[in-house]
């Protein structure tokens, strides 16, 4: 699993303060810790930075590249700011996060990616928003995003399709469809484009204590559908342990076996059944309940684990 570290994110209060104070040490520390924890790239989500993007992005590149060598992902809608940052990159091939299929974005952003030899995350979202159905999202990728790359001679291997994870709290019907979108994208084009998702979006607006469980169960399900790249928290040890269990096929613990079964069932286009789960083990029962909400079989509620 290729993890793009998500922790330099403007939603975080600490990041917000450190950015306001141009606290280089804070960002260098966060960058190093993510890479040491296994991040293979770092997402830099600094918000739109309408006023100072062209100053902030190059500054961030400079201080982060001083301590790590991994690719940097510019997560912003401010194209001028991104461009200023790209000019400053001296190490690994960077990533622009993101374009969508909205005509104006799709016109401009891929050209910038091509000019600076950057990879490009492309969201399966058109001007009428994010479609619920897997097929509609795949259609946006193969009828709009990939053709645009071909049109400007941008390598499809550098076009990272993001079929968009939405939260189980309020957009529950999207959750199973996203799994199928990840699955289908891999056979929709030859050779298949890289696919990445923002995993923790699945638990936006979920009470903090339940977020990691939902993230790692969904992670296991998405790996079953073939996902190999995600923006996620590289310092979430429980998530990384589930990824390790699946990658190494470690069946040495009951919970590990359940994650493997879940992964394999999704891979086979089947569903987990109650017989797969030891309901007397609270951890397994919680995984079962989480699978049920993520497949939209049971309506989500903040206290779904207490039901």
């Amino acid at each position: 699993m290729y993890i793009i570290g998500e922790n330099i994110h403007i939603i975080s209060e600490k990041v917000k303060i450190a950015l306001a104070e141009r606290d280089a040490k804070f960002f260098q520390d966060l960058a190093v810790r993510q890479v040491e924890a296994g991040a293979q790239a770092l997402d830099l989500n600094l918000g739109p930075r309408k006023k100072d993007g062209e100053e902030v992005f190059p500054w961030m590149v400079e201080i982060v590249e001083a301590v790590v060598d991994v690719p940097l992902s510019f997560d912003s809608t401010n194209l001028a700011g991104i461009e200023a940052g790209l000019k400053k990159v001296t190490k690994a091939q960077p990533i622009i996060n993101s374009t969508s299929a909205e005509p104006e974005r799709l016109e401009k952003v891929p050209l910038v990616a091509k000019q600076y030899n950057s990879r490009l995350v492309a969201l399966t979202m058109g001007k009428s928003g994010i479609p619920v159905g897997a097929d509609e999202r795949v259609t946006i990728a193969i009828e709009q995003l990939i053709p645009r790359a071909l049109e400007i001679d941008f390598p499809v291997s550098d076009l990272i399709i993001d079929p968009l994870v939405l939260t189980v709290s309020g957009c529950q019907e999207y959750c199973p469809e996203l799994i199928e979108a990840v699955r289908t994208l891999q056979v929709a084009w030859d050779p298949p484009p890289p696919i990445s998702v923002g995993l923790s979006n699945v638990s936006n607006a979920v009470p903090r204590e339940n977020r990691p469980l939902i993230n790692r169960v969904y992670g296991a399900m998405l790996m079953g559908a073939g996902l190999q790249m995600m923006i996620a928290d590289p310092m979430d040890d429980d998530l990384k342990n589930v990824i390790r269990i699946i990658e190494q096929r470690d069946a040495s613990t009951p919970v590990g076996r359940l994650y493997l079964t879940l992964h394999d069932r999704i891979a086979a286009m089947e569903e987990l059944t109650p017989d797969d789960v030891d309901m007397s083990d609270p951890e397994q029962a919680a995984i079962w309940k989480t699978v049920q909400i993520l497949l939209n079989r049971v309506i989500y509620a903040d206290s779904y684990l207490q039901q």
Partner: peptide, 8 residues
């Protein structure tokens, strides 16, 4: 979601 949560 809120309806179910309140019932719980």
């Amino acid at each position: 979601n809120l309806a179910k949560q309140l019932n719980i």
